[in-house]
Design a protein around this nucleic acid. Structure first.
Lengths: 377, 377
DNA sequence: ATGAAAGCGCTAACAA
DNA sequence: TTGTTAGCGCTTTCAT
């Protein structure tokens, strides 16, 4: 194997070499060289630039941020000098005097689903356009402690606003947010009974239409899997129930399986369902991962999806096209949710709650149910 | 359908009601009530607490942060009062005077793989234990502009350190980091020729062992898919090549497929491979998603995995167990990478580069190759 | 078009 | 054990 190329980089040689390069480089006198090195230690401030240019810090500050009235020449000179001296502004100082920061806080629940990456992507894109940094914080869904920590952090840093993602914020913390007058918006979850603006999909309607989709395919024994105990997501059950009733199909408590939108919930639900003497013919997973779990379990037990059992999911993240069978989904506009969330949060007028459209996209995991096969009906 | 329960919350009634509650609540005189409301507008500061208690701001500050010598009673009193008054400290002020912030910056490449969530999880867990906030920033891998923006943001905010995740930082920016004396560590990618400490898996060795794994199963025509053009990840090719040579199998350039670790790369590679007159019998994907793409493409063309073609992957994220067939993977210690990254970054002494162990976990997507079927050998 | 000066809220010497 | 004081680096009136 002779010399292993991958080992070369852990030899300390290069590091030492680089240090030497810096110390002796560019042919300047050693004293001068040293001063350069020393100067690098503490950061360049506005004052340094002002002194070098014989201007006041005020002029430099205004020039750099393009505020106030200044000669083009001055502004240009200041900017050039700043760049040349390697000036990087001190955000803490600016935040302090301005009473607010250039950042947004995003607070996520710890739910181990995968849809939030799209939302975050949207948020970050939108934030970047406005030159805002994104501070990401995690807080368990039910954990008051963790929630308080996250909110406190956001308020401490005087962020421009807080974006809650799929989080059921506790009542007391909503009060805190109102007290300090912090802007806040909730995405992908309706929370706060109207005190917080929310941008989400219509859970009731999604539940209704998903159910109708399966009924139209000839299914009558339809299960619901992985739905949490609390939160607006439970409205999907109401929609599901209403749809059944509108189609004269009796609602059965026993076909609604609770859980936490996790892969494991899908596994467990399908395992349970297949033991039943009157098994379901279709299942709606509360997330793509729930559906994946359900599909895998069904197939591992020798059933075919969709010919033996149809499965569809909420969310419609990338993954539904990357598995086989591909998964029919109620696809939500997560990316847009992130983008619009930022926009709404920063808009001058208090944003109102609203729904974003969703689409049901039919893929391989659903197919005709028994009623279209001529069985029951 | 009568009353739709899901519509109730967009009625403005509740919002108005809440506002009324606040304005008129608790039975206090209207003037007093108004004052309370006014007071809520501007935040409580240390000075407010000090005044209320007849102490100095210094004592309050020290009590709150448990520094300095103080009577238990004083500390308790201060803390209680702070909580009662709803005090939230101003991070900007603290950061300014202390010259550093209570946050870590994590800079991610935009690569659309999924492994980084484990790393971030590890980072956040580790950061939370140390009471540090996590600032997440994105920067394209090749995009100097975006990289500079991210680094500048991190430096501006005087973060405690920068964690690069799977990012090839440009030379000039490494220089910037060195100049300002910012701590920085690279995870999941070796970068900077030793100037930056790196915690990653041994790409060379992973490439070698993955190849050996397949050779041991009887494969001789083994492809490599989705490997980028640059970066330490290309060392996998060296390991792959060396392993082939050690097993007296000729290395062929044509079996190494370049790409960006994406699902689509897997699709494209497998499509291309199956057209060849002398097709591969096994493929190693540069990421789990590449492998998924390859597997799907093979099956969509009527081939079975693993009996017609074996596929394995690098990374070993959750997904490899959630697809069928489950994917044999070179599983990296991503979560630990995040945890140790934070630890190393904050350690007093300059951390050195090192590898974290990886494991090859055999799953359903690989099986005996032609040499074990008695074909060639 | 530019400068002088006053803080933002906090921490950390140093005094007492 | 506590108070006094002096800023951190920046923005922003208000003068000039």
């Amino acid at each position: 194997m002779s010399i292993q190329p991958h080992l070369s980089f852990i030899m300390p040689g290069r590091v030492a070499m680089m240090a030497d390069d810096i110390a002796t480089g560019s042919g300047m006198g050693s004293a001068e060289g040293k001063m350069e090195v020393m100067a690098e230690a503490s950061r360049v401030t506005l004052k340094d630039i002002a002194q070098r240019l014989g201007l006041s810090t005020a002029t430099v500050s205004r020039s750099l941020s393009d505020t106030g009235e200044h000669r083009d020449q001055t502004v240009r000179l200041v900017k050039e000098t700043a760049k040349e001296m390697g000036y990087i502004r001190n955000t803490a100082a600016a935040d302090l005097v301005q009473g607010k920061s250039h950042a947004l806080a995003v607070i996520l629940s710890n739910t181990k689903t995968n849809f939030d990456s799209s939302i975050i992507e949207g948020i970050e894109q939108s934030a970047a356009e406005r030159n805002l940094d994104v501070l990401i914080l995690h807080a368990g869904n039910a954990d008051l402690q963790a929630q308080r920590r996250a909110i406190t952090t956001a308020v401490e840093r005087a962020v421009r606003g807080i974006i809650l993602v799929s989080l059921e914020l506790q009542e007391s913390l909503i009060a805190t947010i109102e007290q300090v007058g912090m802007d806040c918006i909730s995405l992908s979850s309706f929370v706060g009974g109207g005190r917080l603006p929310c941008i989400t999909s219509d859970d009731y309607q999604m539940g209704y239409e998903a159910t109708q989709f399966l009924i139209d395919q000839g299914h009558r024994r339809i299960g619901l899997a992985g739905i949490p105990q609390h939160g607006s997501i439970t409205l999907r059950i109401s929609g599901y129930r209403q749809c059944l009733e509108d189609n004269s199909i009796p609602y059965r408590e026993s076909l609604v399986f609770r859980g936490g939108c996790l892969y494991q919930d899908g596994i467990a639900t399908m395992k349970h369902c297949l033991k039943s003497k009157e098994p379901i013919t279709a299942l709606i997973g509360a997330s793509d991962l729930v559906a994946m779990g359900a599909i895998n379990q069904a197939r591992d037990q020798g059933l075919d999806v969709p010919s033996d059992v149809s499965v569809m999911s909420f969310d419609g993240t990338d993954i539904v096209d990357m598995v086989r069978p591909t998964i029919t989904s109620v696809t939500q506009a997560f990316h847009r949710m992130g983008v619009e969330g930022v926009k709404a949060l920063l808009s001058a007028d208090k944003p109102s709650s609203r729904f974003l459209p969703f689409r049901i996209i039919s893929r391989q995991s659903t197919g005709p149910g028994p009623c279209l096969h001529g069985d029951h009906k």
